[in-house]
Lab assay of single mutants.
Amino acid sequence: LVRYRTISKIPQITLNFVDLKGDPFLASPTSDREIIAPKIKERTHNVTEKVTQVLSLGADVLPEYKLQAPRIHRWTILHYSPFKAVWDWLILLLVIYTAVFTPYSAAFLLKETEEGPPATECGYACQPLAVVDLIVDIMFIVDILINFRTTYVNANEEVVSHPGRIAVHYFKGWFLIDMVAAIPFDLLIFGSGSEELIGLLKTARLLRLVRVARKLDRYSEYGAAVLFLLMCTFALIAHWLACIWYAIGNMEQPHMDSRIGWLHNLGDQIGKPYNSSGLGGPSIKDKYVTALYFTFSSLTSVGFGNVSPNTNSEKIFSICVMLIGSLMYASIFGNVSAIIQRLYSGTARYHTQMLRVREFIRFHQIPNPLRQRLEEYFQHAWSYTNGIDMNAVLKGFPECLQADICLHLNRSLLQHCKPFRGATKGCLRALAMKFKTTHAPPGDTLVHAGDLLTALYFISRGSIEILRGDVVVAILGKNDIFGEPLNLYARPGKSNGDVRALTYCDLHKIHR
């Protein structure tokens, strides 16, 4: 019993810090008490220290592992850092350059016999395009090294910054494609005289377009951006097909006994025919423009016929181009109408809503002055909100995010209106959640004399007048207030005048 009563005193000691020596009952000389009392004092002292730490809000209350900052290894790049964003855009520009100039170089340097010394005699450094290609190869190699040090988000939505895990993730992902696209074939085969082989191998750079397509997928929600990307894709495919079309004609031209190829026909049409040795002929500019003209006309199913396939190889390629053109029509131009419709969806919704308003007016036989006010209010409210119901949009977000959005939407009023000066951010967040926005066209009466005042109004834009009878008592403008002081009276009061809008007004109100 003594032991039980001794232990039962522990909660009292913990909360009230009572010393055991003052209790005459606990001072009985028993061996059990002498053993338990020192333990009680020690526990009391420890609990006292913990309570003191909690009340003082000291940093040592938290466990040590929670006080440590997340460790980022040296030379690790955050995937959302500004440097990584700028670097990704730079790589994107280099990939676009590669997609345009690599097929052009591979096709127009394929057994090209233009006048001038061969590239091997001039030297590697004197070729501007080769120098640019070398810079692109170096940048792609540097990009691989950067990807080995860039964080990523795993399946659990955690940012991984450990170098080993980053390397394994990159090896399992895009490393092989990036490595093949970054191989400097110019340096590996330079001086061997195989410019045709170098041009063909350099087309491996186009593998990076797969990554670019995935990154550009984030802009699919913007109709104008999608339309622009589709047109660029169409032009890029036409450019690639033009390079292939020229390569076919250029390879067949020296081996044909009869002059029936499209390059021969082009030379005869523009007065620059090929001679018996295969030299001469149109310039590279004429060849490229004509090839691009043929691919565009074939892809769009126009086909004027002034550039036509004559050999079997050219006919087979033309059939493939027609098939590609039909697929592009289905996948690209078939979506253009939907994209344009999405661009004008706001206008369509406006006309639909206006039609419903006019049908309501016609069905209920609203008189002319009231009908005009109804239409003007709808037009003004639509121009202010673009038909978007803010309350319906915010309803799907958590309250903390709703408060931040409301604070942002009402920031101008909260910053410049005098009653809100000096208020804490928590108070402003709470008030912003209570605001209701209303609009009024010129001549609209917001409050009639004798109406119950259940709200306090803040003028965000425009001006109003307060009338008693036919006498203008006051004219209020931006950041002015009218209405009933909230919670100042037990019952809502009545208006002693009319409140009429002089201009288009936007008002925020808080109800009782």
Rank of each mutant, 00 (worst) to 15 (best):
E64P: 14
Q68A: 13
T76H: 03
S81L: 01
W87N: 01
L93Q: 01
V95G: 01
I96N: 01
Y97V: 01
T98I: 08
F101C: 07
F101A: 11
A106G: 01
A106F: 04
T113K: 13
L129G: 12
V131K: 01
V132D: 01
I135Q: 01
V136K: 07
V136S: 04
V136A: 12
I141Y: 01
L145D: 01
A155R: 13
A155E: 14
A155H: 13
H169V: 04
F171E: 01
D178S: 01
A181W: 01
F185T: 09
F185Q: 03
S192F: 14
E195K: 08
L197I: 11
A204H: 01
A204E: 01
A204T: 05
R214T: 04
R214K: 05
D217K: 10
Y219K: 04
Y219R: 08
S220H: 09
A224I: 11
V226I: 12
F228H: 01
L229D: 01
L229Q: 03
F234R: 01
L236G: 01
I237C: 09
A238C: 03
W245E: 01
I248P: 01
M251F: 09
E252C: 01
Q253K: 10
M256K: 15
I260Q: 04
W262M: 01
L263V: 03
Q269T: 03
Q269I: 01
S276H: 09
S277I: 04
Y288M: 01
L292K: 01
Y293D: 01
F294P: 01
T295V: 13
F304W: 03
V307P: 01
S308W: 01
N312D: 01
M322R: 03
G325E: 01
G325W: 01
S326A: 07
L327Q: 02
Y329S: 08
Y329R: 13
G334F: 02
A338G: 03
R342Y: 13
G346F: 03
T347Y: 07
A348G: 07
R349F: 07
Q353F: 03
R356L: 10
R356Q: 03
R356W: 07
R358K: 09
H364K: 01
Q365T: 04
P367H: 08
N368K: 12
P369F: 03
R373A: 04
L374F: 01
F378H: 10
H380V: 08
T385W: 04
N386K: 04
M390D: 05
A392H: 15
L394Q: 04
G396K: 03
Q402H: 03
A403V: 04
L409N: 09
L409S: 03
S412C: 07
L414A: 02
G426V: 02
C427E: 04
L428A: 12
A432C: 12
M433Q: 07
V447R: 02
